[in-house]
Design a protein around this nucleic acid. Sequence first.
DNA 1: AGCTACTTACCGATCGTTCAGTAACGATAT
DNA 2: ATATCGTTACTGAACGATCGGTAAGTAGCT
Lengths: 215, 215
Amino acid sequence: MTDPAATAEAAAASSSRGRSGNGRVGREPYDIAAVLDIAVSAFNEFGYDATSISILAERLGTSKSAIYYHVSGKEDLLRLALDRAIGGLEAVLQLEEASVGNAEARLQFVVRGAVRVLVDDLPYVTLLLRLRGNTEIEREALERRRTFDHAVAILVDEARAEGSLRADIDARTTTRLLFGMINSIVDWYRSGGALTREQLADDVIAVAFGGLERR
Amino acid sequence: MTDPAATAEAAAASSSRGRSGNGRVGREPYDIAAVLDIAVSAFNEFGYDATSISILAERLGTSKSAIYYHVSGKEDLLRLALDRAIGGLEAVLQLEEASVGNAEARLQFVVRGAVRVLVDDLPYVTLLLRLRGNTEIEREALERRRTFDHAVAILVDEARAEGSLRADIDARTTTRLLFGMINSIVDWYRSGGALTREQLADDVIAVAFGGLERR
DNA sequence: AGCTACTTACCGATCGTTCAGTAACGATAT
DNA sequence: ATATCGTTACTGAACGATCGGTAAGTAGCT
């Protein structure tokens, strides 16, 4: 087997073309993060299965085999992309504000954090949310997503217990409807428009927690 | 060209295997609706592009070419399926209750109707909601969906004008968040569980209009 | 006989992936 | 200063498998 770059660990930029003479040996490499960006964008456009390595090569201005020098295969690109998406969501739960204060405040913090991750890594999270679970890599990502959802469901439970949230609807249903609303953002939000990221987060929280009706 | 059944108009059942001698000529046909059901189920499982005609044939217990006797091609199956999904949603807007009474009541009726269609034709609507718009057929379905969304956005506008709905959030954002919540149903709801269709519709309306917070 | 509803065999195109060869560089030896 | 070497980063051609779709023949029925 060849396997030179050991399937390209992490998506951290290595360097951008043009420089030289900075201690490296051999030719200037492509930016792996750029490869991943183009791959994710194409996966979202055509679907993972329908995206050929040829089109990725074309959009990168290289050949198919050049891609195989950097990653071990198509699934490797998917793995790297999904890891970034789900990693971003998981990080929200690790922040201090997700653990201190009353449950409703913690839940709102997580909702706001999720919206931020969705907007900041929109293409990556879009890919994650459209998985079907047909390969082992997809199933692993879905499992991590389920764990995330479960953690949020516990927050919902706690907020109900403290009397902040309505208790007439099943907690799992509540969580799913809440994240249905949040996740739909990837289907229509585009940065650069009139609606900023923080305004969007405000709106989501206002609608989800306060409801559509005038009070 | 072959085109015997004229690309199989409508999804109405033709007949089910087993009968005979009822005025027909030739052999007993497969039920076209059954073909469509299996196709839609596979499209949802693997994605449209990643679903091969071979696997459809295998699941139907026939050969690839047998399928081509009934439909003009893979896209024909997609067209029939999408037409059923979007047609169901459009039908909700045609019902009398969508046009009479105050705007909030009409909006809630449409939301309830949409939930019913989602649940009743779950696989078909799932397919519709996961479109990417890479073929002409997909773009046509997306266009019809946009028209549907627009009609609902007008309802939201009217409900705001009559003072029923909050007016501090953009009407388009409101509509998108509302349908984000509704559409997410296809990702997790499965009939046969404890949550009935009407209870689900009640919950959606309660959360969307009343909000998560205890009042 | 005449029609429907297939089956078997095959088509060219495209898929993800591999492989042998090589161009571009920094480092080292002469 | 030049030649050589090792390493990286590729290129171009080809692989077997599978894709959607077709052509020709045939079994089952009235």
